[in-house]
Computed example of a mutant assay.
Amino acid sequence: MAFGRKVTIYLADGAPSGIRHVEIANWSGQAIACPRSRLNELKDWSEAQRPGVYFLLEKQTAETGDRAYIGESENVVKRLSQQDKNQDFWNEVIIFTSKDENLTKGHIKYLESRLTAISIEADRYKIENGNTPTESLLPRADKDSMEEYIHNLRIIMGTLGHRVLEPIKVVESLQNEVPSKPKLSRFIFNFSIRDLNATGQQTDDGFVLFKGSDISGKTSKSMPGKTLSIREKWIADGTLVPNGENFKLTKDSILSSSSYAAVLVAGTSRSGPQSWIDENGRSLKAVEEILLAET
Rank of each mutant, 00 (worst) to 15 (best):
G65I: 05
S275W: 00
G14F: 01
E294K: 13
V287T: 10
S258I: 07
R5I: 11
G217Q: 02
N246S: 07
I150V: 11
N40W: 07
S269P: 02
E288T: 09
D214I: 06
E279R: 15
T199D: 05
Q274D: 14
S220L: 05
A25C: 03
W276D: 02
K183R: 13
A33S: 12
A48C: 13
S192E: 14
S28Y: 03
D205T: 15
T8A: 07
D66P: 03
V77L: 10
L255A: 08
K109R: 13
G106V: 08
C34E: 00
F89M: 13
D88K: 11
N246E: 02
V53W: 00
P273N: 08
I230L: 12
G217W: 00
V178K: 12
S229T: 15
G29L: 00
M146R: 01
R270V: 02
E148Y: 08
I94W: 01
K221G: 14
D278Y: 04
H151R: 11
L153W: 02
F191I: 04
Y125Q: 04
I120M: 15
G158F: 01
T159Y: 07
Y260T: 04
T116I: 10
D205K: 11
T295W: 02
E279N: 15
K248R: 14
H21A: 12
V287C: 02
S37I: 12
E112D: 07
K251F: 09
G225L: 10
P16M: 03
N243M: 11
C34N: 00
T116K: 01
G14M: 01
G244S: 03
G71P: 05
P51N: 05
I168H: 03
H151M: 10
A293H: 07
S119N: 05
A122N: 06
I290L: 10
S73F: 00
G4C: 07
R231M: 06
E23I: 08
C34H: 00
Y110G: 11
V241D: 04
Y110P: 09
L111K: 01
S98T: 09
R154I: 05
Y69L: 12
L174S: 15
I120H: 06
M223R: 05
G272W: 02
N176W: 08
R231D: 01
K105V: 14
S253K: 07
Y110V: 12
N40L: 12
P51E: 03
W45S: 11
I120A: 06
Y69C: 08
D123F: 02
I150Q: 01
T61Q: 06
V178W: 08
D204Y: 06
L103T: 01
K211L: 05
E245H: 07
T116N: 11
V265A: 01
P139Q: 04
T132R: 15
G225E: 14
I235C: 09
S81L: 14
E72H: 03
G130Y: 09
P16N: 03
K43W: 10
D44E: 10
R36D: 03
S283H: 03
L284M: 07
F191G: 01
H21C: 09
P179K: 05
E58K: 13
L138C: 05
W45R: 12
N131C: 13
R186Y: 01
Q82G: 05
P35E: 02
T199Q: 14
E166A: 08
Q175Y: 13
S258D: 13
K99Q: 15
Q49V: 07
E294V: 15
